[in-house]
Amino acid sequence: MDEDKLKLAPIDVHKIIFRIGEVSKMTGVSPRQLRYWDQKGFIKSQRHDTSSSRVYTLLNLFRVGLIKKYLDNGYTLKAAVQKTNERQDMMETMHHFIYHSVSGIENIDGKLMINMGYFDKAKTSYLYGRLDENDETEYKVIPVDKLDHN
């Protein structure tokens, strides 16, 4: 099979779960505090029934870490949750944009560049971008008819 044609199956991040003790160890938030945050609706554990242990998804692990970071920086719990909500909203917007706009990575003039999709509504040009060796952003607009897509 052609290596270029191999695609990895996406990982369902909702299936990556951690027990409350693991989340506590990784974030430095006590299990008691995690249960309190869960009870208040600041985070959401998953349970198969009322007698099973709390488990948290990878996304909730990140959420706990963000809340803790804001608390450590002096925010109240209410403000830390609000800041976390704002940050997660921004990240979701960015993820949605990237998911729908990035079309892959291509070699353009000997440089690996990210194909960021069509540059114009008429679909006559593509926008490519990359970070150079100094981490400076470089963009290039290339007309569709100038690309060699074999």
Rank of each mutant, 00 (worst) to 15 (best):
T27Q: 03
N73M: 13
P10C: 09
G28N: 07
R63P: 00
A9Q: 11
H14Q: 12
L58M: 07
N73Q: 14
K78A: 14
S30Y: 01
F18G: 03
I43N: 04
V29I: 13
R32E: 10
T50P: 02
L77S: 15
F62T: 11
L61M: 12
Q33R: 11
D38H: 07
Y36P: 00
I17P: 00
L8T: 10
V13I: 05
I20A: 10
G74P: 04
A9E: 13
K25C: 06
F42T: 02
L77N: 09
K69H: 12
S30I: 01
R47G: 08
V55A: 04
I11S: 06
M26D: 05
S45R: 00
S53C: 03
E22P: 03
P10E: 15
L61N: 05
N73V: 04
K78L: 15
V64G: 08
S52G: 03
V64A: 08
F18V: 06
K5W: 07
G74E: 09
P10W: 11
G41P: 02
L61T: 02
R19I: 08
T57K: 01
D38P: 05
R63A: 08
G41C: 04
R35T: 07
I17T: 15
S45D: 02
Y70W: 11
S24N: 04
T27C: 04
F42V: 05
L34P: 01
L58F: 14
E22W: 05
G21Y: 01
I16C: 07
G41H: 05
L34M: 13
V23H: 10
I43R: 04
G65N: 13
K44I: 12
K40V: 09
G74L: 14
L34D: 06
K5L: 14
K78R: 03
F42I: 07
S30E: 01
Y75I: 02
V29D: 02
K15C: 09
V64D: 09
D12R: 06
Q33Y: 05
E22C: 04
V29A: 07
Y75M: 14
A80D: 07
R32K: 12
Q39A: 15
D49R: 00
S51E: 12
